[in-house]
Design a protein around this nucleic acid. Sequence first.
DNA 1: GTCGATACGTAC
DNA 2: GACGTACGTATCGACG
Length: 912
Amino acid sequence: MPTLILIDGSSYLYRAFHALPPLSNAAGEPTGALFGVVNMLRATLKAQPDYAAFVTDAPGPTFRDELYPQYKANRPPMPDDLRAQIEPMHAIVEALGLPILRVPGVEADDVIGTLARQAASQGIEVIVSTGDKDFAQLVGPHVRLVNTMTNTTLDEAGVAEKFGVPPARIVDLLALMGDSVDNIPGVEKCGPKTAAKWLEQYGSLDGVMEHAGEIGGKIGENLRRALDHLPLSRRLATIKTDVALEYAPTDLVLRPRDTGKLRALYTRYGFATALKELEGATVANGSDAGAATLREAAHAAEEAPHAALGGPGNYELVTTQAQLDAWLDKLRRAALISFDTETTSLDPLRAEVVGVSFAVEAGHAAYVPLAHDYPGAPAQLDRAAVLAALKPLLEDPAKPKLGQHAKYDINALEKYGIAVRGLAYDTMLESYVWNATATRHDMDSLAKRYLGVDTIHYEDVAGRGAKQIPFSQVDLDSACRYAAEDADITLRLHLALWPKLEATPTLRHVFERIEMPLVPVLARMEQRGVLVDAAELKRQTQDLARRQHQAQRRAYEVAGREFSLDSPKQLQAILFDELGLPAAVKTPTGQPSTNEEALEAIADQHELPRLILEYRGLAKLRSTYTEKLAEMVNPRTGRVHTSYHQAVAATGRLSSSDPNLQNIPIRTEDGRRIRRAFIAPDGWKILAADYSQIELRIMAHLSGDAGLLAAFHGNQDVHRATAAEVFGLPQDQVDANQRRAAKAINFGLMYGMSAFGLARQLGIGRAEAQDYIARYFARYPGVKAFMDATRERAARDGYVETVFGRRLYLEDIRARNQARRAGAERAAINAPMQGTAADIIKRAMIAVDAFLAGRDDAHMLLQVHDELVFEVRADAVQTIAEAVRARMAGAAELDVPLVVDIGVGANWDEAH
DNA sequence: GTCGATACGTAC
DNA sequence: GACGTACGTATCGACG
């Protein structure tokens, strides 16, 4: 019987691009994907089919985009390196004599589906050459799939075995599973196994949907929630087989190949094996000249990156002095040095440096192993000597350097006496400033998003979990591939990201004047650490534990049995099932909540809720704070060294972890006591400086509201002033309750709170809360106008800005889902204020750090969003206090004064 | 053992 | 559904 091979060109190109290293030819043109496609095509054509076609997607929207506007909306734009290979691919396919099909308005899949159906009905044997599982729906008596990755074929029995359902049920399976790549919604938590199980049980998607009520558990709920969109998902997953085409299967005959053109193309792209085959030469190893599958192609390419493929993609393992000297020379001449360190720990203060890597041009990088230590490890250059040779370069502020999360490397190198200067760019921060929420900002995520590249992951070379080995035990070849790639990818990311930032002056300003200068400041704060009185924490732990056990014993008595006070599930059973107390609050999953609000609501009906609250409070303080902080004291320094994260918070704030020193308790007496353990050395004091009402001041500035501006210019108690306005009283007649209400309104508005929320917060009726808000907006019309304008701007631009031009993109601002959109609007209201406050304190930190440089009487230790904490030699307190105050207050010129409150004491509690 | 989801609670 | 931004602990169930 005649055969037809239909080649899914788009899938080949993508798969080859991601499966192969970023190869390029001598001219620097990217060739990796091309190489994979060419090898695949040569292997495919060896089968000498009667008919064949290379099918790709035509540009422009398809009927699926019309059905579902979010179709493939999550796909990153095609990487430039891949786009560049499309034209050459078509040229080669053309020269090979293969018909190329592109049909506007449908996808390649639909063209293939239609041709396969037609051909099969004419008694032609069809082979669909693809790596895409979606094609399993086309398989039938005369249609098979060839998987390009494994070179295996899939017939009807194969589909049933692999997916657990016959080809006719594949679309149902795909609809249930969804497809995150194409952004097709399925049933949450439903994978191939669950989907197949349901289809087995109920026959089809319609059957599953009819019986959705019978399926229990969380996943049953997910299924019921998905019911509305499942028919659409099935339509999207269904490959069309009735596209009107200009060709019949029998038109798809191969033309003779154009040997001259092929020779030129193979030569240009450096495809040596293909060239040899073309010239009829035999191949040395006797096996197929071109690797038949992508896996083989990838293998071949990795083994011989220097051979025919030439040029970039070269990672050099540096183990001799001559090699090092050559690289030092390169680094000295380079306009920009991309560098990275490999170490033994995620904690840079505990980390040993085991190697360094460099790149100065894309695709070309070196790894210098310094302390790899495993049986049979080759000799390496001496760490001290190499670091000494690098020191002048790394410390030279005039030698611009580039890193990915370079604060880590700066900290790791510090203990080797290297004080990195001249860090000009950090790709993590470039990405963060460009778009803080589009992606995480680790290198693997960035490479995927901005380069379309799958990097080698740390786990790939070092393992994970209990099986993880220190990087010093990774073999040199793997280490080189991984580490050199890090430096290379960092450089390539910079080449992709910097032009975008540079072209946007406001973002460039945030990057150059705020984020980059902050990096060494944060590194110094982390290195310094804060002195902690571990003995005091131990005493507190003892005290808390004693009271915790007391509360626990009493709770068991009251409940009549023992149970885990730490388990919300068990608490729920006792409180609401056994004791029959009313459940005032529900968790997001619909369970009766046992949180503080819910327990307070029933505290007058039973003794147990109060005991649980007591226990919880004590348990929290002990496990999260007193015990944990004592553990986290670094034995080398006697201090606690937090990590600050500069590319995490959507608004531009910093965050802190290991331990988090930005959420040390202050509101309750038991909690505040923990701050007494944050101390200064003998003869030194703790100085705490915080901005007074900074976000409200920024709201006054941004809104230009006359009343609010006046309150701050008059240095009034803003909550009292607000209460006076809202309740129509002179300020001296405002009572404590009215001030409390006004404070709740002021804060609530900044967070986009509704009347519902305010009512709940204040324990008043919704109508009353609405009345407060109406009166507030009547007295402060500028605030109302500002909030409306912010919502509108967010909807129009898709982002909002801080005073300094930092942007926050709001993914959901145009969402059709009401709740998501409302959430995005609240974030849009809050972000300019929270973000401007973050910008201001970052500017202040840079200024204060510059003032402290070269002094030995004060160190900046902590930042807690609107507060800076220092240790100051006792005799310098006055000087430092005024210098800090001046720099914090002067960090921005707003239409309101910035007021800074300063306290000094023996510990952090006293300094407030 | 590890991982992710959930619930809860601390800060600004 | 209802207040923005974070991080840490504990429990619990799935997974291997």
